[in-house]
Design a protein around this nucleic acid. Sequence first.
DNA 1: TTCGCAACTGCATACGAATGCACGGGCGTA
DNA 2: TACGCCCGTGCATTCGTATGCAGTTGCGAA
Lengths: 320, 320
Amino acid sequence: MADLAELAGVSKITVSRALSESPLVNAETRERIQALARKHGYKLNVSARNLRLRRSHTVAVIVEMKPSSGRTMWDPYPLSLLGGISQELTSAGYSVLLTTRQGATDAAVQAADGLILLGQGARQDAVRLYDKLGLPMVVWGAAAQGGDNHIVVGSDNRQGGISVAERFLSIGRRNPVFIGNPDHPEMAQRLFGFVDELAGHGIKPLLLRRADFTLESGVDAVRSLAARKVRFDAIFACSDLLAMGAIRALVELGLSVPNDVSVIGYDDTPLGASFLPPLSTVRQNWQEGGVLLARKVLGLIQGHAVQSQMMASTLVVRST
Amino acid sequence: MADLAELAGVSKITVSRALSESPLVNAETRERIQALARKHGYKLNVSARNLRLRRSHTVAVIVEMKPSSGRTMWDPYPLSLLGGISQELTSAGYSVLLTTRQGATDAAVQAADGLILLGQGARQDAVRLYDKLGLPMVVWGAAAQGGDNHIVVGSDNRQGGISVAERFLSIGRRNPVFIGNPDHPEMAQRLFGFVDELAGHGIKPLLLRRADFTLESGVDAVRSLAARKVRFDAIFACSDLLAMGAIRALVELGLSVPNDVSVIGYDDTPLGASFLPPLSTVRQNWQEGGVLLARKVLGLIQGHAVQSQMMASTLVVRST
DNA sequence: TTCGCAACTGCATACGAATGCACGGGCGTA
DNA sequence: TACGCCCGTGCATTCGTATGCAGTTGCGAA
């Protein structure tokens, strides 16, 4: 900057102002300096500016590697969150610092202006850990049980569970099964909604615990039901893959979907939509969730009052 | 740091050294200062250190948003690259700055110590753009045509195409079809390998251009072949989804896979493996590619000589 | 005693940009 | 002519940390 100042015949502070579009400097001077900067390939030193301004225009996104259950944040769909986050932050002039939670806190995270936590960790430990940094923080996940002081954004898993229960009830199903992992807070919410709604009609669903969210796991789940000669006429699977596996196994067993057994998945993946038969499922808009997360952190960073928010999840009835 | 120094009764510079594990300071003093720092929740100012040390321990990963063809980097599998990158960089003490390429260069990118470019852009324009920053740079994609000066890592798409051709030849197929988008450099390589190998046996495949890499697109492609009454006995699809769509359409048409038509996909997605019938495909190890990318940038940053590298792609023969 | 060396510690300064305040000149008004 | 104001510019200083060099202390050897 000092060099540029010399070239332009002004002081370096005028250069600084010219490059940051300050109205304090004469328009013509500003143009001249900017042209000079371009010509000589001048690059602003971001570290220096961050130091002076005490902000980095950076938001750290912390991805949980070892989740409480089998589902990883590196799975395709949770990653759509990242897409939304990145899109929103970038267009607001912020950068995304991507970190995976493993061992010590990344030093660079401390320089961030805000934090987005993807996956709250078993017993909220991740939340507590990062709370200590004292940065604006927004968490993706199930709503906090108690009076926690950080913002939470998530889709309304409980409502999702209720919707599925309502659907099963409306088509006269009496022996529903839930496949998923209740240790995962989000899945637990789905289960609670599902169970509560059914209980209102005197029905108690069977809980089939599965930690993997793969097609194979779904196949296996249904086979185990058959092996145990369980009587069931509806399946609520915690992911589309599980649901597709379940359907495959049902077909193998000679059962008809949805005549003998109704199946509803979760996430509304493109794959489920083009599955044969097209999968009924609960839609979660991950992308939009990411955008929302980003907006909330930005709000906090700018000192606005911001509230937790649950995103509606909607049942998409197709053919299963 | 000055405050800590006062508390500990030493100068701030001793504090600095104590916190960075410098052997210059007395072990006992160091312990005392570190304890004090912990107690008062002292946080190192990363911006200041970056300024002083002229490095940020950060690598920018630039994801191309609008690719030359229908495939987005936000698709699940390219994202595995990110997983590998993140894993490797984090464990080397580096942070990942995630940027999407849209409009102006993110200021924070300039502060990075190195660059990883995911998707080289049509006509290498992205590469040229970022080359100007003068940072160590590694690009994921097809090998550069000419004497470019940046490092390229990618899977050997040409070899992949050759393997598929060899397979088709070995099982006596004479009328192969290629489904994909040759505008995309990586797909183009697959096509070239495929065509060249077949040409050696006097066979010229049919090229069916498809920009979308969805199941629907695969269905549609095969239907159009049927509508045009094209004679074919083998399909090389540029993605597993395309291949699965193709198979579905073939089955609808009453054709048997693989008896009437052989189908080979690309990427070896878990989904393809559990498809019915299990999909034959070409395996690309994205995760490992990410690790490799990360290692190369780190090498460049440390001033080592580093070379471009193609990762072998292997044909996985299953049932199609 | 004196010197040399080792082990610590501290001073001054640098890193590159941005802010508060002051300064100089041009212009309009009284 | 004198005064005040605005526009444009520059000086000094600040942000928080790390390095080169210099200083201090204690101990053993000459």
